[in-house]
Design a protein around this nucleic acid. Structure first.
Length: 676
DNA sequence: GATTAAGGAATTTTT
DNA sequence: TTCCTTAATC
């Protein structure tokens, strides 16, 4: 045991108190930039140094990257090596659920080779069931697959009945309540038949296991300590899992900030963190209020911003970093001016010595960076984009993965469907028959005993051969299997889709990723549960030391920080998003989102918005629209910032400088917009 | 039963 | 606009 605790000296009093907390529940309310990651990492290191076996520590975070980062810091903090910390159980709720369910699949009533569907697959399966039940056949207004899945997911994750969920979030679907119930019942049965789980099932099965006392004793008994990061973004099922895990041992540490709760669309419930002291009696509550990240003027602005929130539980943060420039709110003539402003500032800061990867551009929705990306490419500035449309959603990538999935779980019908559609002469109807046949045998080689339609003769033999090869392939070498699949698929892919060259590169990337794995199952699990969230994550690392700018959705920026942050499209309609202004609760969450974005900045913060922007599908024809500054940039917030304009001219410019353009400019805009 | 053409709807954030 | 569903044709 290591009794030298000098390494705890670089913590402040509250952080230290949290780190050395003994037995029993602990809630750490950690404001933005208050050293939350550090505290949690040090606590892990501390527990290990006190003799807790690392494999008896469960550390749950929001992303796998966050877990890895924390474990790395834990190893660096103490003199305990990585060989100790790497034994910690660390990852997302979903990946931990997967791990547990692989161990206790029998008790959970799951086949040992169950596969996990991503959201798109779940939607497809929902659609299959929907059609089989003839729902929406004579009624075009029956909710679409995405909506159905959304309703289902909200009920499951929020542990709520249909009625309140429909009333609150989907009032236009209320009349379909009974039909939806039937649909969901059949959807659940179908998943069980096929041995597939959706994301929600991972949590749900885990929770159900824990509801059994013996299992709660068994699973909870594996862990001496449970630690949870970003607790404000957990949902009711996750809170239930934690209660189940801690029925016979109350060592639990949760860390979070109610002001940064931004996942209610995934049924996250702020009440989890607010009610923690009631849920876990005798909980110690520690608040971290010193901000180490941002300079004082930025903190002043973000404090003013969040003070507009109705319900607020944490206190104002303070910073010892007194120097620094005030945030700039930049009114741009149009999107092009915004792009130009941002790029010029990026290059200026770069010249001053701030590398690109210490600068980030943040936005509400993935597509809001489209025009900036074109500008960056034109100017040869390399960037990584996080969030938005993801790599695994691309059709060709899904195709490739489907091959692996049918070998892993021959009953996985959604995967089979994709695979079979690639053969000319096989359509939905034949595919359905084949799937029933193969699922019955639970062996992909059963293709051989199915008599294909004459039109499909050609591809059929090839596919059969492929399945043979994959089933007999070397188990520990998924990269070889991917290569074999590509020999079958590459040409078909090229015939099917545009952009074959770029897509082929993606497939090569997957092969490289596969090379890092020793089992197909693990590869598949990681691809669905911890998907690479930037295309560049996938690439091997030849360009590792190259510098790149970060572009990210605000959601994906959670937990990160940069020297310079640009929040773009800070106009009403984008932030808050038009899609989320139906009620006060949604608007509050958008405000917290703006707060998360702006608190990512260490030294420089720019908030920009274009007066006019292009609305692509607003009304059939492309059209630009005049917008207004985000309602969150109130008088108080603006008073703490420097107001700048870019590309505007004349009268509007002058009014901008005085911060009083609103009325005049609005009238002018209204009048001219009529003729646009 | 597969393929293609025409018509209709929608538009965020992510494990 | 694009994506997705449905209806008509092969």
């Amino acid at each position: 045991m290591n009794n030298n605790l000098e390494w705890l000296d670089d913590l402040n009093a509250q952080q230290r108190q949290a780190v050395v907390h003994g037995e029993g529940p602990l809630l750490v309310v950690a404001g933005a930039g208050s050293g939350k990651t550090k505290t949690l990492a040090y606590r892990v290191a501390y527990l290990i140094s006190r003799g807790v076996p690392p494999e008896r520590i469960l550390l749950m975070t929001f992303t796998r990257r966050a877990a890895e980062e924390m474990i790395k810091r834990a190893a660096a903090a103490s003199d305990r090596g990585a060989h100790m910390t790497s034994r910690v159980w660390g990852g997302t709720f979903h990946s931990m659920a997967n791990r547990i369910l692989r161990m206790y699949n029998q008790q959970a009533g799951l086949p040992s080779d169950f596969t996990v569907m991503d959201e798109a697959d779940a939607g497809d399966l929902m659609n299959v069931v929907r059609h089989e039940l003839n729902l929406g056949k004579n009624d075009k207004r029956f909710p679409r697959k995405g909506t159905c899945l959304g309703i289902y997911s909200r009920c499951v994750n929020g542990c709520e009945m249909m009625e309140p969920v429909l009333t609150r979030h989907y009032p236009w679907c209320l009349e379909y309540k009974e039909a939806l119930k039937t649909l969901f019942t059949n959807y659940v049965i179908r998943k069980q038949q096929r041995g597939v789980l959706d994301y929600d099932d991972l949590l749900l099965y885990w929770l159900q296991l824990l509801n059994n006392e013996a299992m709660a004793r068994e699973i909870g008994g594996r862990f001496d300590h449970v630690l949870v990061d970003e607790y404000q973004d957990t949902n009711t099922v996750q809170a239930g899992i934690l209660r189940g895990l801690r029925r016979f041992n109350t060592n639990i540490t949760v860390v979070g900030d109610d002001a940064q709760s931004i996942y209610s669309f995934r049924a996250a419930n702020v009440r989890n963190i607010l009610d923690f002291p009631q849920q876990f009696t005798g909980a110690t509550v520690i608040t971290l209020e010193q901000n180490y990240r941002s300079v004082e003027p930025i903190l002043e602005t973000t404090n003013r911003l969040i003070s507009q929130s109705r319900e607020r539980f944490t206190k104002d943060l303070w910073s010892a970093r007194r120097e620094g420039q005030r945030p700039k709110i930049v009114t741009c003539k149009d999107e092009a001016a915004q792009d130009r402003f941002v790029v010029e500032r990026i290059l200026e800061h770069y010249e001053e010595g701030i590398p690109l990867h210490k600068q980030a551009v943040l936005f509400r929705a993935g597509h809001l960076s489209d025009s900036l990306e074109i500008e960056l490419t034109r100017r040869n500035i390399s960037y990584h984009k996080y969030g938005g449309l993801r790599f695994l959603e691309a059709a060709h990538v899904k195709d490739l993965i489907s091959f692996l999935r049918v070998v892993e779980n021959p009953s996985d019908e959604i995967a089979w469907f994709r695979v079979l559609q690639m053969i000319d002469g096989i359509g939905p109807a034949t595919a359905g028959k084949i799937i029933a046949h193969v699922a019955k045998a639970h062996d992909p080689r059963a293709l051989k005993t199915f008599k294909p339609p004459a039109a499909a003769k050609e591809g059929w033999a090839d596919l059969g051969q492929l399945m043979d090869d994959l089933v007999t392939a070397e188990e520990g070498n998924p990269a070889a299997q991917v290569q074999r699949i590509r020999s079958f698929y590459d040409d078909r892919m090229a015939l099917r889709y545009e952009n074959a060259q770029a897509r082929r590169r993606d497939l090569e990337h997957i092969e490289q990723v596969a090379a890092r794995y020793k089992s197909r199952r693990q590869l598949l699990t990681d691809l669905t549960l911890d998907p690479p969230n930037s295309t560049s994550d996938i690439a091997a690392n030849p360009l590792k030391d190259e510098d790149w700018l970060v572009l990210s959705t605000i959601h994906s920026a959670k937990g990160c920080e940069w020297d310079v942050v640009y929040v773009i499209h800070a106009s009403d309609g984008c932030l808050p998003s038009d899609m989320a202004t139906d009620n006060d609760r949604e608007i509050e969450e958008e405000l917290r989102l703006a707060y998360v974005a702006m608190t990512r900045a260490r030294n420089f913060l720019y908030v920009t918005w274009p007066l006019r922007y292009y609305q692509k599908w607003g009304s059939y024809t492309d059209k630009h629209v005049y917008s207004q500054m985000s309602r969150f940039l109130s008088d108080e917030v603006r008073a703490s910032c420097e107001m700048v304009s870019c590309g505007t001219s004349g009268y509007a410019d002058e009014m901008d400088q005085r911060g009083g353009y609103d009325i005049v400019e609005q009238v002018r805009r209204q009048i001219s917009s009529q003729w646009d």
